[in-house]
């Protein structure tokens, strides 16, 4: 069996006395997408931040391509070179143009020559229909466009794994679709992903596995159709019912 891209084993995370994640174990094989669903505060974002080493775990192990990235002597900067992360609030750099945002990491972190990085960035922007925005500043773009630029920015570094943290939650409903279709394209091209989302329909389309996170624990997991249509745990049923009532299913 090939080594999975990501493997978490019995991961635990606390903030002071509050346990945010407990006994988190899952595997993400290459070219698959694992989607985390769950109420706000269930620990989805913290989980992604822990994988990205933005937060430190308090127990357990995180393996990236078989390497223990939760080891004490690991250099986070080296690990993050293999990971792409997209945030709920886009977090584009407002003082840089779209193009400058995209080429920052390739040129400064990976040592790619500037003209090569620019060519590649323009190619990516073109592919996602944003080439004409290359020289604009982020505040001139719609939310959906900003988020797509943020996705492109992490793609420009050829990440091994893409972490998407509720990337549509800050968007108005009309703009959600353009972002989701971008992610669907990535999935088709074989990108390995871990996502946190409130968009159940979308989860069903892209996920290979759906995990329901409840008070910091993975309460239930499985194939998207089974999980979203006939969950077995009462908590999952209740959550999906509430999501449905909110019109998100």
């Amino acid at each position: 069996m090939t080594t999975p891209v990501l493997r978490l084993e019995k991961v635990r995370k606390t903030f002071g006395s509050e346990v945010v994640l407990e006994d988190i174990t899952f595997t993400v094989p290459v070219h698959t997408a694992t989607v985390f669903i769950g109420a706000s505060g269930s620990g989805k974002s913290t989980l992604l931040r822990c994988i990205n080493l933005l937060d430190q775990i308090d127990d357990g192990q995180i393996l990236l391509d078989g390497e223990d990235i939760s080891a004490a002597d690991i250099n986070p900067d080296e690990v993050r070179k293999k990971l792409g992360m997209v945030f709920q609030s886009f977090n584009l750099f407002p003082h840089m143009t779209v193009l400058e945002n995209v080429i920052l990491a390739p040129t400064k972190v990976q040592g790619v020559a500037k003209d090569v990085a620019v060519d590649e960035a323009l190619e990516l922007l073109k592919r996602f229909g944003l080439k004409d925005k290359a020289d604009q500043y982020p505040d001139r773009l719609s939310g959906g466009q900003q988020q797509r630029v943020a996705i492109i920015r992490s793609l420009a570094r050829h990440p091994r794994l893409l972490l998407l943290d509720e990337i549509t939650s800050a968007l108005d409903p009309v703009l959600v679709n353009e972002v989701l279709s971008t992610v669907r394209d990535l999935k088709r091209e074989g990108m390995t992903m871990v996502l946190a989302t409130h968009e159940m329909g979308f989860a069903k389309q892209v996920a290979d596995e759906v995990c329901y996170l409840h008070n910091g624990r993975i309460l239930e997991w499985g194939a998207p159709s089974a999980m979203l249509e006939s969950p077995s745990r009462p908590e999952t049923k209740e959550f999906l019912r509430r999501v449905h009532d909110a019109g998100r299913l």
């Binding site: 990205n52 945030f87 920052l104 990491a105 400064k108 990976q110 920015r153």
Partner: peptide
């Protein structure tokens, strides 16, 4: 802080 988080997650060092 989210700006810092975004930069660090792109692999930029503290100084960068």
């Amino acid at each position: 802080p989210s700006q810092r988080a975004a930069a660090r997650s792109l692999g930029l060092s503290h100084f960068q």
